[in-house]
Design a protein around this nucleic acid. Structure first.
Lengths: 327, 327
DNA sequence: CTCGAATGTGTAACCGGTTACACAAAATAT
DNA sequence: ATATTTTGTGTAACCGGTTACACATTCGAG
């Protein structure tokens, strides 16, 4: 392995000059630069990033902490993070936290020791002490807003209001809202948005807490639909729970969208694979990931960025689980 | 930051002794061990892994190269890799290759310089020169088998035969096989399996090449179904293309499973969210990822492992896109 | 009792970079 | 012409570990 000393010797300069040349820092004369460049080329020298990291405490590594990459919301996010990171010369470490604070903390600490440069985090415990003392650039995604941590999120509240209006405009008279887990910020925002839209509509509604999980949602919706025969619209806080609802409806022989209209939230790819296609409030997950990554890298590279909160607009995707609007 | 020298001083021993104690290598007396342990505790010493890596050229990092994490087949794989890696104290770097050899090569080289310990690769270019000269532990997943690279894969051929038989047993008289891309090994194996089962059945069949992509598949199947009205069974080489086929059938008003039965391959979560549920040949993706990771780590840690090929059995999941078997 | 092997420890080189600092030469200001 | 600043370079310390090697002691075998 050729080292910087080999290069220095061959170029007839000191290692300091070579290092300055390589990092474009400090003064290097034209002659020296030429000599070093030639030596680098001739020796096929490649800088050892680990040795560099030992000094600089930087690694061009960023951590992406998600609850579970298996949740269909996250792969696209990961993809965006990876794409943007690559553009800037960074590499992504994937961490599944299972929403487990211990696991999360463990990752944070282990990777910090490895001189990781920063984290993009999807977590609902951003206020936990292990984040406060972090002293490392962090960007929060989708969830939880903390004073000191920049956050990228969809306008969940407005999005949920939009989704609700889709059902209202299409004549629903009794709407079931599948509220997400109460400990999740975005789920709460969506609940607020639903309430915003439903409150003055005069339409009857019902709220049931339902995890973002297919089988659980199917079970819950099955029960509710059996108990309350007159429900003609469901707004689910996630596409996965919407899929569960559709399944339950199908098993009960309830026709969608004729007897029951369904709207989801998220915009995951599965939505259009269903038949009928799932009407949904689509988040621009890729964009969220891309923004988060850029913000993080800016922080890592000490560029000033005054903005702290980045809201990414959602977009309605009207598909087959709702009827056409005019009566 | 406390260093090994601080610990040595406090414990009244040399840095070599501390290092030996920490690494459990060489001789360390009971007294020395106790003194060092106490010093470590008192100083809250934590070893700097980057400094260590500079010497050992190991980082406890492994790379996972997938074509695209967004493809629903891969998140579960990534999850398995991550879970097992964590167990052994390794961390996972995620790389999306887009099947692009340049990108792949670039990752390989960049990360090798960072002293990454090994790679798990899902690629169809394992014979490419950049793999041959790698001199790093690699395990191949799902695709391509190379003399020197251990491979973990499903028994695609037998699985495809099983899937085909599902249609045959249920009385299909004219089967359409959606063959995957010809450059993918597993797709070819599935084709062979299909042929194995169909050849002597006397049943008519048709083969169409179809990428593992929803919209493309829908388009292709739509065309074929329009042209050939008598198709009563479709075996798709992937669940995503099966979903496309179902969508096409629905749009054409063809009833599944009454007029047309469909079987997929992969066993991704989406399959059960569809209505009717997708009958499929399920791969045990999690297991594949877990095995691959264990094999890789064994290699990294120089444990001998004679076995080179690991076949993971597939499992039939009979759901609603096929009828019950008895006539 | 002698000797070779096993046990235990420290010094210093090394992994491969970065960078503070000292110093010299050239350019600019006075 | 002198003082000051800018430019350019090298030496050596440093980042924080690992480890080859030399050396000392203890132990069991013969």
């Amino acid at each position: 392995m050729t080292t910087i000393r080999d290069v220095a010797k061959k170029a007839g300069v000191s290692v300091a000059t070579v290092s300055r040349y390589l990092n474009d820092s400090g003064y290097v004369s034209g002659d020296a630069a030429k000599a070093v460049a030639a030596a680098v080329k001739e020796l096929k020298y490649e800088l050892n990033p680990v040795a560099r990291s030992l000094n600089t405490k930087k690694t061009n590594l960023i951590g992406l902490i998600v609850p579970d990459i298996t949740n269909p919301f996250f792969p696209e996010l990961a993809r965006a993070v990876e794409d943007v990171a690559l553009t800037y010369g960074y590499t992504v470490i994937l961490c599944n936290s299972d929403e487990n604070p211990e696991k999360e903390k463990n990752y944070l600490e282990t990777l910090k020791k490895k001189y990781i440069d920063g984290f993009i985090v999807t977590s609902n415990q951003l206020d936990a002490p292990h984040y406060a003392n972090m002293a490392l650039p962090i960007v929060a995604l989708d969830r939880a807003i903390n004073e000191h941590i920049p956050t990228v999120a969809s306008n969940n509240r407005e999005g949920a209001a939009m989704g609700t209006r889709v059902l209202l405009e299409r004549g629903c008279k009794r709407i079931l809202f599948l509220r997400g887990p109460e400990e999740l910020n975005p789920a709460n925002d969506r609940y607020e948005g639903f309430m915003d839209a439903i409150r003055n509509s005069g339409v009857e509604y019902d709220v049931v807490v339902c995890p973002f999980h297919f089988a659980d949602s199917e079970k819950i919706v099955d029960r509710v639909l059996r108990e309350q025969k007159n429900i003609d619209g469901i707004f689910a806080s996630s596409d996965v729970s919407a899929a569960g609802a559709l399944k339950a409806a199908a098993k009960l022989g309830i026709a969608v969208p004729d007897e029951l209209q369904v709207v989801g939230f998220d915009g995951i790819a599965m939505g259009e694979m269903l038949t009928p296609g799932l009407t949904t409030v689509a988040q621009d997950v890729y964009k969220m990931g891309a923004i988060a990554t850029r913000v993080l890298i800016k922080r890592i590279e000490n560029q000033v960025e005054e903005q702290h909160f980045f809201e990414v607009p959602v977009q309605l995707k009207i598909r087959g689980t709702t009827r056409s609007v005019e009566k």
